[in-house]
């Protein structure tokens, strides 16, 4: 701790003229960097795994389970999924992995999500690194300009995320078959897919844009009792948006891993009934 007399500050930020002449840029004594480290580790791990799986283009269908990374199929080069959401909108000219056509939508939804914005602004861009810890940038315009003004498109990604969640729900229903295609059977994978889609729905519905659309935009709740109830329901989920963001991210990765392990023969799916 420096205790010698310091003259008036002449710098920027907390050292701007007129402010208290405290030599240290920040004085926090707790481990303020730990959440940011955890965020970087978690997001990089997911990005690394999902990039590998998205470009692999194989082991994404282990009848009756289809990986959430590859559903719906929008290209002609997919492995046919029995009864699955296979729509060859892109024809056979698409030679890359079909996952790339799908993943761009959930990627955009999460990239513009209000929680993830907080997480990566802090952890990757240090804007700010933590509360009351100065950021290293000399200039700041926030989300007023291109490209960050595009964060306002979050609601459009929400609109797309809802049908995607519906398709994944349909995939869960398909998972309650046996390898021969007969209904009324389930393996461990059926419940892996079920847990994943529950978390995906919870994350999607807890979205701040969803909260606004179902009722938040209203000025008078008293004239719209149903929308008020919906807004309250989404609000209760929204309190846990961070938890749901991480748990659904983990579950979608683990579900894909499960399908990969079964498809590649590394693990036999236990049949429950």
């Amino acid at each position: 701790m420096v205790s010698t007399e310091t003259g008036p500050p002449t710098g920027t930020g907390v050292h701007s003229p007129g402010r208290a002449a405290v030599p240290q840029r920040q004085l926090r004594t707790d481990r303020w960097w730990l959440p940011q480290l955890a965020t970087v580790t978690g997001l990089l791990a997911f990005i690394g795994y999902s990039t590998w799986r998205a470009f692999e283009g194989a082991h994404y269908y282990a009848p009756p389970y289809v990986s959430p990374f590859y559903s719906p199929c929008l290209a002609a080069n997919c492995v046919p999924v029995r009864g699955g959401a296979d729509w060859t909108l892109f024809g056979d000219w698409w030679r890359l992995s079909p996952a790339l056509l799908v993943l761009i939508f959930p990627l955009g939804f999460r990239l513009t999500c209000y929680y993830y914005r907080k997480a990566y602004y802090r952890a990757f861009w240090s804007s700010p690194p933590a509360c009351a810890v100065p950021e290293p940038h000399t200039r700041y315009t926030g989300e007023t300009r291109f490209p960050l003004i595009l964060q306002n498109l979050h609601r459009y990604f929400f609109y797309v995320a809802v049908p995607f969640a519906m398709i994944l729900t349909y995939d869960v229903a398909l998972g309650f078959r046996n390898t021969g295609g007969e209904w009324g059977h389930a393996g461990l994978g059926s419940f892996v897919l079920l847990g994943n889609v529950a978390l995906i729905w919870a994350y999607t519905l807890s979205c701040h844009s969803c909260r606004h659309i179902v009722g938040g935009r209203l000025k008078h709740f008293s004239g719209h009792p149903v929308r008020h109830r919906l807004w309250q329901f989404v609000g209760r989920l929204n309190v846990r948006h961070m938890l749901l963001a991480w748990s659904s991210l983990a579950s979608v990765g683990l579900t894909d891993l499960y399908v990969y392990l079964v498809s590649s023969g590394a693990f036999g799916d236990p049949q429950l009934f």
Partner: peptide
Amino acid sequence: HGLGYCNITKCCTEVCPEQIRITD
């Protein structure tokens, strides 16, 4: 009032002694 400058990093919510969920 410059709402676009806010990048919703929630420090305002963290420090609020009245526990107002300012950001959300």
